[in-house]
Design a protein around this nucleic acid. Structure first.
Lengths: 217, 217
DNA sequence: TGTACATCAGTGAACGCGCGTTCACTGATGTAC
DNA sequence: TGTACATCAGTGAACGCGCGTTCACTGATGTAC
């Protein structure tokens, strides 16, 4: 991509070992999440985070090389939770082996993803930061790509189709459209959550009915 | 929303009057667009912008109160161009008065939106900034809401349905899904542009076939 | 059970830097007569 | 056609501030004997 963009270290440094250290570490993440809501990505700083967490800046530097690593840790946590929602949704539909069953509960997975993101302080702000801040983009993109591949494998069995490029693309588009619907409703607080998620679910349902050659509702 | 978030002035100050001033003004916008690509939203500053534009910082302050106003001006320009794409797509389909004609060319409007965003230096970075930076969010949200209302009015005539909340929501979801597809392909450079846009178009098509009670395929 | 010691966790103070912002100013452009 | 003047456009220098980062350090925790 762009070469002029400076490389940023995102790896965490020391892992917290003692109890006290774990509290400090968690305190840093909570403080960062709160500040992401209050002042936004563009104003957050290690100084602010340490202050809010009730520690000094060098204590933060013990665990994170910079502020991006802190946001990255928050992002990894959220991506993991979102992925887990999707994974368990797939699992609970694996037994059925029946496309209709899956199509009937797309709304559920959107709602569960919405809930898990809402539950995390600064959830939507974290997602937006992952999109907008170059050094963090990799995390969200690779997370979506991973989930899409798993989804494509699942669909391959369900629809008895090979895992070719077309299927992977269809899976990826579905995943991204699902997350987009959730993000849309989190970003614009004036929208009716359930209605919008239901429309998003219906869109995905019609798409897959057409792909799989199933009857329309 | 959040009250702790400081209010930021986004209105431009003096409008450029003389020729020289117009060049300076445009130079500021171009420099900002380039820097958005090179260093990202979180590192851009009035100092960097003025430097790149070949002027001193007080010259920038003559036209903009702060860096957010600069990005806001870039964003307004881009939103306007995207809206224009959609407007002219609707217009060229208004004559027909036939849903099938519209459904047949959803890909075209996605591709045209993709092209117009791609054409603008820092196009995707501008969109991401509008999403992630609180004081700029209003611009994108109200732009999407406006386009959705216009679309709902159009659909009302086409499908002979009243402009009720349900129709507005459906229009809004469609608009946001369209933009999301475009943004997805701009954000992840590894994806095949045409294939992804075609899938997005197909998803919207199936959605509206179902809504309008039209035959599939 | 006590204590000496190693390791882990967090502090206080300091640094240089780029940031946003403002000032009084010089220079460029356009126009009235 | 020339020039005086008003307005517009951009400069140089300065400011205080919060930023990221590092240092040698003190204090807390855990453990070997």
């Amino acid at each position: 991509m762009t070469t002029t963009r400076r490389q940023v270290e995102l790896l965490e440094k020391n892992r917290p070992r003692q109890e006290r250290a774990k509290r400090t570490y968690e305190g840093i993440l909570s403080a960062a999440a709160e500040l992401l809501v209050e002042v936004g990505v563009e104003r957050i700083s290690t100084n602010l985070i340490a202050d809010r967490a009730g520690i000094t800046v060098p204590a933060l530097y013990r665990y994170f090389p910079n502020k991006y690593a802190v946001i990255n840790a928050l992002g990894a946590q959220l991506m993991e939770r979102q992925n887990e929602v999707f994974r368990s949704w797939l699992d609970s539909n694996l037994q059925e082996g029946n496309p209709e069953a899956l199509l009937a509960c797309i709304y559920d997975v959107l709602k569960a993803t919405y809930d898990v993101t809402r539950e995390q302080t600064g959830g939507i702000e974290i997602v937006q930061a992952l999109r907008a801040v170059a050094p963090l983009q990799e995390l969200r993109l690779s997370s979506h790509a991973l989930v899409s591949e798993r989804f494509a494998g699942f669909l391959s069995k369900l629809l008895r189709r090979p895992v070719d490029e077309a299927l992977i693309i269809q899976a990826r588009v579905s995943i991204d459209i699902g997350y987009s619907t959730v993000e849309m409703v989190l970003e614009d607080g004036t929208l009716p959550v359930e209605q919008v998620l239901r429309q998003g679910a219906r869109m995905l349902e019609m798409y897959w009915r057409n792909s799989a050659g199933l009857a329309v509702g």
